[in-house]
């Protein structure tokens, strides 16, 4: 290679680092501060997890999962009925919210994209996700408890269903939207109807992502207390029907943590451990699933 060659010109100023200049000092101070903030935020996470683990392990036995709560002041017993109640209310919530949420998401993603109607539905769904869960509880109380005259698993399920709905709509719509348009065009190009394209091509491709969203919504709902507080309410006994007051794990933590009896407090910690494990495991699973999909 040939190249022109020049004598070296004189350099205008020093390029070297000046560790004591105000600019450098400010930058270093800010970096340290932001690291400090990040560590500060992780302290509560570690502390909550550590204490829940430490206090919850002592009663993590078979009886805790199979027996009824102890009478006030007594030890032993378990939260078997509350575990069952959580499963029951969450199942009712899932049965109500999943069909509505997924079908609405199909509209938003497949037919309503960029329409004003879809814009409004998106807007209201987002706002709905910001409505305090206790207000949703009050709504379910008005609609179910006051009309049926009793606290029930159904009332709790209705409240949780409303709570889950925005999450399901949003995650399902995102899942459907991420299905490549080529699939739709190929299907329509072959003469398929919109119904066939949606149900046979787009929906199956989105199912894993939709299930991830549903899983997350269910885990969050299982940990929610405010909506079931005065809808499912509480019970010391096993459920025989879905139309009677029903204990849930989260409500049991609230009642027993604020009760003055050590036996109940221990159970509250153990129930907390179960709830935390549930949301952590689903969050981590969901993350792994999403990560794999992105790769």
């Amino acid at each position: 290679m040939t190249a022109p060659d020049f004598a070296t010109a004189r350099r205008p100023g020093s390029l070297n680092r000046k560790p004591t200049s105000p600019r450098t000092l400010f930058a270093s101070a800010m970096t340290v501060l932001s690291i400090f903030f990040t560590l500060l935020a992780l302290i509560p996470l570690v502390a909550v997890l550590a204490y829940v683990l430490a206090n919850g392990l002592s009663r993590l036995d078979v009886a805790a999962f199979t027996q009824l709560p102890p009478a006030p002041g007594l030890g032993g017993g378990g939260f078997g009925n509350a575990l069952l109640g959580t499963l029951l209310t969450v199942a009712i919530a899932a049965v109500i919210s999943i069909p509505f949420g997924v079908v609405a998401a199909i509209y938003l993603s497949e037919f309503g994209r960029d329409t004003r109607l879809a814009d409004w539905v998106n807007f209201f769904t987002n706002v709905l996700s910001g409505v305090p869960s206790i207000v949703i509880g009050a709504f379910a109380y008005a609609v179910v408890v006051l009309t049926t005259g009793t606290f029930s698993a159904v009332a709790g399920g209705v409240a949780l269903a409303i709570l889950m709905l925005p999450t399901i709509v949003r995650t399902a719509a995102e899942a459907l939207e991420s299905v490549p348009n080529d699939f739709r065009q190929a299907s329509i190009g072959l003469g398929a109807t919109r119904l066939q394209t949606t149900l046979k091509i787009v929906f199956p491709a989105a199912v894993p992502a939709i299930l991830t969203g549903i899983m997350l919504a269910i885990a969050r709902a299982a940990g929610e207390t405010a909506p079931v507080l005065f809808t499912a309410s509480f019970s010391q006994y096993w459920n025989t029907t879905i139309w009677q007051p029903t204990a849930t794990l989260s409500r049991l933590v609230f009642s027993f943590a604020t009760a003055p009896y050590p036996g109940q407090q221990e159970l509250a910690w153990t129930a907390s451990l179960v709830l935390v494990a549930l949301v952590l495991v689903t969050s981590i699973l969901a993350r792994l699933v999403t990560q794999r999909r992105h790769k």
Binding site: L42, L45, V48, S250, Q265
Partner: peptide, 22 residues
Amino acid sequence: IVFLVELLAAIPSVVYGIWGIF
């Protein structure tokens, strides 16, 4: 770390409650 910070939001409110009390 991003994930851990997000996990703070996943812990149920009632668990923060019992942790807060004790």
